[in-house]
């Protein structure tokens, strides 16, 4: 006997999937907002590949 399409089991699974989806979207929005807030607060942003890093240059100057 197959389960009906609107079985309680499906409803629970759908609820679980929607819950996980909403949680993940909320997490993405929070991390994005956090990034914007950090950038606006003037935190230094340094890439780590194939680019000049001001932090390293300052240290080199201090060493001299």
């Amino acid at each position: 006997m197959a389960l009906a399409r609107d079985h309680e089991l499906h409803r629970r699974r759908a609820g679980r999937n929607i819950g996980v989806g909403v949680t993940l979207v909320a997490f993405i929005v929070l991390v994005f907002g956090l990034t914007i807030a950090k950038v606006q607060s003037g935190g230094s942003i340094e890439a780590f590949d194939h680019t000049f890093r001001p932090g390293l240059a300052e240290r080199a100057e201090q060493a001299q």
């Binding site: 006997m1 079985h7 309680e8 089991l9 629970r12 699974r13 609820g15 679980r16 929607i18 819950g19 996980v20």
Partner: peptide
């Protein structure tokens, strides 16, 4: 033969 017990999102919360 009846509705199996399976956790909903609220149960994990």
């Amino acid at each position: 033969g009846s509705a199996p017990i399976e956790a909903g999102f609220g149960d994990y919360v």
